[in-house]
Design a protein around this nucleic acid. Structure first.
Lengths: 213, 213
DNA sequence: CAGTTGCGGAGTGATTCGCTCCGGCATGGT
DNA sequence: ACCATGCCGGAGCGAATCACTCCGCAACTG
């Protein structure tokens, strides 16, 4: 039997997913009305659950950090260093990890988020270090490079535009095409290529998470 | 001697470059005021040159198509099929080709744009075909894949966020890091990798240009 | 010095924003 | 069957921002 509580919980999940989607499409300009509409609920219901827009974004950030850490742990659990790293990258992109960049600088960073972020950094660094030692990741690619890659693939301009055009029928094909692009980028991470141009990026460039604060 | 006309021309170039930058950052929500401010000119000056926002965007689109075609011709002029293709991709990303996606569906498409776009498609297809024949591009990567890749790298979330935080000192480092990411993706295009997941994307997915209209 | 030309930005109505508040309806107890 | 309860959607609010206009000022010309 479906109770009212079930509906509330389903609405909550839909809300958070919709918030990620709309954020990925509209960036920092994402409006509360758009998020509620995408989730299929009223604005009033959204504001009953979260007092302000910022509270919703903070909740989203915490969820995002949790997902990052869980994905990193699962990646480390894989005995194959390369498969573990690749699954981590794919999981983060699919989750919409990179779509939170635009709000990272706009919300207040709590102690909880700082702690989770530091933990995530450790796990991720270990994931990359293990791949380097196994020789399955090119030496000149740093952890920050991969972080930036995840953030770069956070938004999907093709999906955004098709959605804006109302071509929902093409969305699955667009998602598949995006996975192909990610596979291409992952292949570029494997050893056997020329050195990358420029100097390795510093940690301060990766702003999607909050470990520096 | 610097005449008033020189200043006008410099302002015009600055305006178009600023429009590309702001479009890349803010997407379809890019405001005329933001473009004028980035270009360092007044709003009135912008509206003296372009009657409406759409007229500016149309001019930007034509310039973008011209750049695409010139870059493709230069790529074909390179005797090395791989270097020609790589230079084309880098040139398009650097120019900000992918940043025009958000407005592609919002402006009226002129006959001129359609013709230029078709010409660009031919050149680009030839560039890809040549690389395939020379065996320097993996067989399962299509021209549409590469188009989507260019569009994917059109926006730079790292640069966007640093600019929003006012960390202009880090912008050169961010641009360099982005070039490293593109180099990684380009390496992933070379032969010797596993087949890409899913089926090859169809032309209708690439909406950055207008050849289908 | 008068005339002209390109310039910046305050101002305008329309739109959109985050957010509040209330009428309506499904639910559950009696 | 019937009311009481509580969650739901969306109309409505002031504030902010949008695309765009208009005008006074500064710089150049003859």
């Amino acid at each position: 039997m479906i109770t009212r509580k079930d509906i509330t919980e389903r609405n909550d999940r839909a809300l958070l997913q919709a918030a990620r989607d709309v954020l990925a499409e509209d960036g920092a300009h994402a409006s509360v009305a758009a998020i509620a509409a995408r989730a299929g609920i009223g604005i009033g219901s959204l504001y009953r659950r979260y007092k302000t827009k910022e509270e919703l974004f903070q909740r989203l950030s915490v969820l995002s950090l949790d997902h990052w850490n869980e994905a990193a742990e699962q990646g480390l659990a894989d005995p194959d260093p390369w498969m573990g790293l690749a699954a981590f990258v794919c999981g983060c992109v699919e989750f919409g990890q990179g779509s939170l960049g635009p709000i990272a600088g706009a919300i207040e960073v709590t102690q909880e988020m700082g702690a989770k972020s530091r933990r995530g950094d450790e796990l991720f660094d270990e994931l990359v270090r293990r791949a380097h030692e196994a020789g399955v990741l090119r030496r000149d690619v740093t952890a920050v490079d991969i972080s930036l890659l995840i953030e770069q693939f956070g938004r999907s301009p093709v999906v955004d535009q098709l959605r804006k055009q109302g071509r929902d029928d093409l969305l699955p094909a667009a998602a598949e095409a995006r996975r192909r692009l990610i596979a291409i980028a992952l292949d570029g991470l494997r050893p056997g290529h020329d050195p990358l141009p420029g100097s390795p990026p510093g940690k301060e460039l990766f702003t999607g998470r909050w470990s520096s604060q």
